[in-house]
């Protein structure tokens, strides 16, 4: 009886499908086509390698994203494991505080970094007091690094906590009873068990960092990361074909990274920044 109603389900999904096709599928296809209308046609997709400015921006973005991912994983693993394995007064509040920034848009995160490490920022004031010199990190690659860490840490902590909660505490106890030191327990038992979660959240973190526009927009007036390069090509240089081809390449990179994440963990958290 239910089987006979199959066409009905396709009918119900139709509104979503129409919107998706009209406003996503068709425009993205058009974008890919426009990307190939540059001076060199399809070869303009190679501009990411051939144009030094594009290539440098690409390398810088990838390196930055890898660095952020590595740091975010280490920091979040330590904090996330600690929060899962220890319940104490205020630990729930701590978890809430750590995950609140999830919903901050990239621009706001940029502003947070300005307050932290900008010209009137906290770090500057402290360093001025201590060493008589204002340390201003916000508008350099360091600022971006801090900003990307800011939006990455909550996501990664959530994923790691979810994975760690599923861990059987007896596994650790078994390793200990066999004589393993704390370090050996972490390396031999905990990290292998967290591996899928670590890879998944690492991939999310990488993809989000690659595509982060808001944070870069607030902080990176002088730094070419890929989203900023695309933005400048489009608005200032009116190089629509170039912007389109770079967008498509960026989109493919982030999509593949997230596909990897999903195949490993079955879910992804919002990629905005």
């Amino acid at each position: 009886m239910i089987r006979r109603e199959y066409p009905r389900y396709f009918l119900l999904i139709l509104p979503a499908a129409i919107i998706f096709i009209t406003f996503f599928f068709v425009p993205m296809t058009r974008l890919a086509v426009v990307g190939a209308t540059g001076d060199e046609g399809v070869a303009s997709y190679l501009s990411i390698i051939q144009t030094p400015r594009h290539f440098e921006s690409m390398v810088a973005t990838v390196l930055l994203s890898i660095g952020v991912t590595a740091f975010a994983l280490v920091i979040s693993t330590i904090a996330g494991l600690f929060l899962v394995r220890n319940r104490f007064r205020g630990s729930e509040t701590l978890v809430s505080l750590l995950t609140f920034p999830l919903a901050f848009p990239g621009v706001v995160i940029g502003f947070m970094i300005i307050l932290l490490a900008g010209r009137q920022g906290l770090i500057g004031s402290i360093s001025n007091y201590l060493i008589g010199y204002k340390v201003v990190l916000a508008y350099s690659m360091w600022g971006l690094f801090l900003g990307y860490l800011y939006f990455s840490i909550p996501r990664v902590i959530l994923t790691i906590m979810a994975a760690a909660e599923k861990l059987d505490p007896a596994l650790e106890e078994a390793a200990q009873s066999l004589g393993a030191s704390s370090w050996e327990v972490i390396v031999d038992v905990i990290l292998p068990a967290l591996k899928p979660g670590l890879i998944a959240s690492g991939a999310i973190c990488f993809a989000t960092s690659m595509g982060a526009f808001g944070t870069a927009f607030t902080l990176a007036t002088n730094i070419d990361v890929l989203p900023m390069t695309i933005y400048t090509e489009f608005t200032l240089n009116a190089n629509i074909a170039g912007a389109a081809s770079l967008s498509i390449i960026l989109g493919i990179i982030t999509w593949i990274a997230l596909l990897l994440a999903r195949s490993l963990s079955g879910s992804t958290v919002a990629a905005s920044g």
């Binding site: 059987d168 078994a174 009873s177 066999l178 393993a180 038992v189």
Partner: peptide, 27 residues
């Protein structure tokens, strides 16, 4: 516990899923 030299068997077995049978016994 790691210095007491005890052997422990758990209700959930607590075998390390990232190791084979032999690796578990050898751990």
């Amino acid at each position: 516990i790691e210095k007491r030299n005890v052997g422990m068997v758990f209700q959930s077995y607590a075998l390390f899923p990232n190791m084979t049978v032999a690796e578990n016994v050898a751990y």
